[in-house]
Each structure stands twice: as C-alpha cells, then as structure tokens.
C-alpha cells in the first residue's frame, strides 16, 4: 500500500532548507552552538528521504536517498559526563529495557536475523566504550541513523 500516512509538516522545513540557494548558507553562529559530528546537508537529505517514503512519495524518496551520501558520517559524540543514555538504559545493563534475546533482537520467526549476520554484534555489544564512543555503540546510532545517510 502507499501513502499510509501523510506527513507534510516535517517535509516543508526540510524542503525549504534544501532549496538550491541555501545548503551552504548555514550560519557559523548556528554551527558553533550545536554539537559537532553531524553533516547537516546530508542529514537533511536523509530525513527527507525517510519522511517521503513514509508519506508514499516514492519518486522524492528515491531522489533524496540518492542525494544522501553513504560515506559521509554523522554521529552524536558522547563523553564520560554525557553518556549515551539509550545505551545506558537499554543495552549496557539489560535491567531496564532490552531485546528478549540478542540473537533474535526480539523479532518473531520469519523476521529473525541469520545467526551469521555480522550486524548483530554491533547492536548488542555491552562494552563500556559504547557509553561514550559513538562509533562502536549500538545506540548512538538511534538518531545518527536518522541524520546520516544510513539505510
């Protein structure tokens, strides 16, 4: 089915921001006041692709997905003071929320990953570094997925 849910409102500001004249016009004052690590134009293309797909606009989803680079990396950079809070509550302790089973990610039969799937360790690691290093944690990724040119 298509167009199951129309999401025009998120698309409007994304479209305005991506007008040909504006992608390079992000002010320095804005950049210095937000956390580093996020490529804004690429993130906007990725967000627009996602919302276009949700809205059922396939042509726009395809063009925006193509415009979003898969090699440009965006991360939320955590520190020992500002820990990766979703990792803290969902993965590192497994006593708040967690997948029922790390080998299935809690998915039903038919959707469960192949045991040889090399993505599993990335999403289920409990190593301490994941608290602060966006790079190997599973959950920094939660928003970075949205922002970067991820799947």
């Amino acid at each position: 089915m298509t167009g199951h849910r129309v999401l025009p409102r998120p698309l409007q500001p994304l479209t305005m921001r991506l007008q040909p004249s504006t992608p390079n016009a992000i002010s320095g004052a804005f950049i210095t006041n937000i956390p580093g690590g996020i490529d804004i134009p690429n993130a906007l293309h990725a967000l627009k692709a996602r919302f276009s797909l949700f809205a059922g606009d396939f042509a726009q989803a395809l063009s925006e997905a193509t415009a979003s680079s898969l090699t440009v990396k965006s991360t939320f950079n955590f520190t020992t003071v500002n820990l990766n809070l979703i990792f803290e509550t969902a993965t590192s302790t497994n006593n708040v929320t967690a997948a029922i089973d790390n080998t299935t990610l809690g998915l039903p039969a038919g959707l469960q990953p192949d045991p040889a799937d090399k993505r599993l360790p990335f999403y289920t690691t409990t190593t301490y570094n994941s608290k602060i290093l966006g790079i190997c944690s599973c959950i920094y990724y939660t928003m970075a997925h949205l922002l970067a040119g991820r799947k």
């Binding site: 996602r50 979703i86 969902a90 997948a99 990610l105 998915l107 959707l111 990953p113 799937d117 993505r119 599993l120 999403y123 599973c138 959950i139 990724y141 939660t142 997925h145 949205l146 991820r150 799947k151």
Partner: peptide, 9 residues
C-alpha cells in the same frame, strides 16, 4: 528490523 534496530522506525 535488523539494520534500524532501536532506531524508532
């Protein structure tokens, strides 16, 4: 489901 695990989609 796998690639976007815990990503909110």
């Amino acid at each position: 489901c796998i690639e976007l695990y815990m990503s909110g989609f």
